[in-house]
Amino acid sequence: MTLPTPKAPPPALVAVTRSTLAELLDPAGAAELPRLAARLDAVADALILGADLVFEAGTALEAGTATGAGHAGHAGIDPTIAAITLAHHTRRVGLVVAAVPQRDHPYNIARRLSSLDHASGGRVGLFIGVEDHRATAGSPWTYADPVAAAADAVTAIRALWRSFPIDTIVADRESGLFAESHRIVAIDHRGAFDVDGPLQVPWSPQIWPPVLAWSAGAGGSALARVADVVVNPEDTRLVLHHVGSLSELRRLLSTAPELPSSPAAPVPLRARFGLAPADPPTGGRQAFPDPAHNPDEKQKPDEKQKPDEEPNPDEAQKKVSHVR
């Protein structure tokens, strides 16, 4: 975990539940949205969307909100849908999207987060959760322990995020070559989830949006090991405002101190958390082998090479055969 040096002011995070997002993006309140969005840009380094997916009920944070409990039962909306709408209305605030790979497959999470990072100019982060207590029980994708599955999902998602380098897209109008596709790699991830890749979205502005985990939540230590930023209720290097309703959000946005002004261009969220720009490896099995660019003569052009290790029967049993 890396956080800014003590000299920099601590990042100010505003955590909102899915029900607050529903209130905030109610079409009936569209007239107020631009003003609230501008205040978010002014006072927060990042908004955490769908905090109820990652902060367990009954924690100090949840209990600390005056009306949080009263809103826990309200209908909410999907954090990724909320994030793209807010990406449109804001210019600089980070958008940390809570996601749980219980009913949402890691491939689909990786794709939506990468899409969001493109749409927001590199302002997106992933807050990894273990279980959505408001969803129907169980996972349709894996029998693995939910904490292990969430940690494995982070590994798979990061591998997907690096699989399609954006500079492969040359778009040479003269020759007709759109992408140097021989440089796109499969990931052949094997674990709680098996994911071949590549991702269909080329590198987003951050390539690797920061992954956050909650130290006090279920599986905190397992997720802390794979996260870039661990959010800890006692950590003074973060200022965390937990908001349980739109009226609380309005109050916070009108009273919170403004951040020092920043350049007009969006700051990558990684930088706000003191993380260096991502520099992922680019090697791997070619997804679209090209005889002219084949590092391995023996690999036939249309034959996918699988990792040569034997499948572990215990691993294999964890998979749900979701189409029987």
């Binding site: 491939y107 689909n108 897209i169 759109f178 140097e180 596709s181 269909q200 979205v201 679209f288």
Partner: peptide, 16 residues
């Protein structure tokens, strides 16, 4: 949900 067609000659479905 996948990079189904080789993008050598054209873009294909990307953002969700």
């Amino acid at each position: 949900p996948g990079l189904r067609e080789d993008p050598r000659f054209k873009p294909s479905r990307s953002l969700e």
